[in-house]
Design a protein around this nucleic acid. Structure first.
Lengths: 330, 330
DNA sequence: CATTTTTCTGCAAATGTTTGCGGAAATGTT
DNA sequence: AACATTTCCGCAAACATTTGCAGAAAAATG
């Protein structure tokens, strides 16, 4: 069958050269209106569509971005991706999405895949213990723009788009101090991650000035550990009257324990979390949180990537400001 | 600069022809070991990587699947995608992800994008009022396998991979009958969707046999409407002693209202939902639900798509069996 | 030494599109 | 009529890879 239409097939039908057909379809001034009309008619009839493989080869571009995240099925990343995809599409780009599963090896493989597919740019949230840095440097030097988001390297080698971690943690701490609490339990995630360190340090910087408040810092790897931790805290003598949660995951664990206890929120114990808002709104009472929006971050990151398509820019650190969303947990 | 390595550049360096270099790298028996060694060394040194644009052009394949969903940031789809991506990668494929936003126009545009990118296959969960059917038929006839999942057309034209909707709704109804309830409020989603119809009909088929139970069916478009609906139900005289929720979205709305009421769960009113389990586990008490796993469905759908890569298969309707997960809400 | 066989390599075409350059035909100017 | 200009179109190369075919050189056989 005549399967798919090509310039060649159209030109053969009309006894024209391939180049004439190409130019006619592109409204090139060299081609007469009569020829243009004939060509366009037949092209429409044959449902001609330029072969993107050929165009990619010729232009050495694909209009596709590689996007690497630890896991798509995550409250934060799924909204990030959702926003990024919409913006990309508006500018004629598409996303190729790859998951690292928080595995540095998988991450490196995904980066190689990006190279293999010759994506026009890479957006990446890095896995813990990532060794992707040098790979990314190489890609950048080969003209593939790299935008790091959320979990970013500390070096100033790449564009970074992040939640205002310090600002958010500072805001959290200041909020807590307003409520006259005595014993604060602050639960953070993996201690090794820079995101944890940044948040913890900014948080502590404020709390240490408050001599009237005893602050205890703890770390946990997942929701179950947060639950465990909370259980220990409320049964032992430490008895905090406030718990700060660095993330949704932690908040979920904390709340599961508190629900089973007889503690009233915020009467006996108050809660403040960092979140995109979905989980806090689900819980009862609704949790007060510092907003960290994946949507917003996705918009910012894609905007930056698209800027990099137009011109080469020196690396820039972009920060998404945060805000306090009042619930009923404080 | 020598930017990226190509066969041509390697061949120039070694005074060989392009074809010899190509064959050497592919261990073709025609090429002497000595030549092979030389070529491979230089290729490694220059970090040669075959140009996928050229390969795509030549083979007329891209090893990329198009995946169209209403919205990525959705408990169900994000896990579907997560599973699908992992399986695709294992078989050397990648995913290009596009969102329709439940807009038939956007959906059609995305399908055209898939055609433009010449993806090797399309996985799609269709928007309400989709008119993609004929487009998909055309793609299928042009040799692009189509796998519909979750929201699928009723025709037998394509592979479909679905939750066992009837089975799940039947299981839900049977579960409810076991608990000696009098007044059941069953809340479903958009009445126009086939998924809604299937679940509702199967549900009703069981309930109508139970003369002792009064069943009321309601529909709602989103979480807020479900909240409203519940509010009306518990304040007016109807006073249900059970609420069935077709989806997480509905469950969330229902629970928000119930939390503010003084009704005890399951004492005064019991709850049964359909869900992937995440939300039910978050709520208090934990909600009993019929499991509808996005992960599992993603695995099934990708498996089917990969089968279609090997050989042409007649359309097949694949159904993911469901199970009851006991919480504390019944 | 002549012929056949084996071993190795290169030519050229094909995939589809774009574009600089040149050239033919038609029209316009003296 | 001779020349210049405009209008319209095609050739061919380029992008990178693969592969059937042919052919040269070397080795083996008679």
């Amino acid at each position: 069958m005549g399967q798919t239409a090509t310039l060649k097939k159209i030109s053969a039908q009309l006894n024209l050269s391939i180049s004439t057909v190409s130019r006619a379809l592109k409204n090139h001034p060299d081609i007469s209106d009569k020829t243009k009309r004939k060509v366009k008619e037949l092209a429409a009839l044959m449902e001609y569509e330029p072969n993107s493989y050929a165009i990619n080869l010729r232009t050495n571009k694909s209009r596709v971005f590689g996007l690497i995240v630890p896991d798509i099925s995550n409250m934060f990343y799924d909204s990030f991706i959702s926003a990024a995809e919409k913006d990309a599409r508006k500018s004629g780009y598409s996303l190729m999405i790859l998951q690292s599963g928080d595995d540095p090896l998988q991450e490196a493989e995904n980066l190689k895949l990006c190279k293999h597919y010759r994506v026009d740019g890479i957006l990446i949230s890095m896995a813990p213990n990532s060794y992707a840095h040098e790979l990314l440097i190489k890609y950048r030097d080969n003209g593939i723009p790299v935008v790091c988001f959320d979990k970013t390297p500390v070096s100033g080698d790449f564009d970074t788009v992040c939640i205002a971690d310090e600002e958010a943690a500072t805001l959290a701490a200041h909020t807590i101090t307003r409520y006259n609490r005595k014993k604060v339990l602050a639960i953070f995630g993996n201690e090794e991650l820079s995101i944890t360190k940044k948040r913890r340090d900014a948080f502590l910087k404020v709390m240490e000035k408050e001599k009237k408040i005893a602050t205890e810092i703890r770390y946990c790897a997942n929701s179950a550990e947060a639950r465990e931790l909370t259980q220990q805290a409320i049964t032992k003598t430490s008895n905090p009257d406030h718990i700060f949660c660095m993330s949704d995951e932690i908040l979920i664990g904390v709340m599961k324990t508190l629900k089973r206890s007889k503690l009233a929120i915020p009467g006996d114990i108050s809660i403040l979390s960092m979140s995109n808002g979905f989980i806090p709104g689900l819980l009862n009472p609704e949790i007060t949180y510092i907003e960290t929006s994946g949507y917003e971050l996705g918009h910012l990151a894609m905007k930056r990537m698209l800027e990099n398509m137009d011109e080469q820019n020196p690396p820039k650190a972009i920060v998404l400001p945060c805000r306090l969303v009042e619930g009923e947990s404080m």
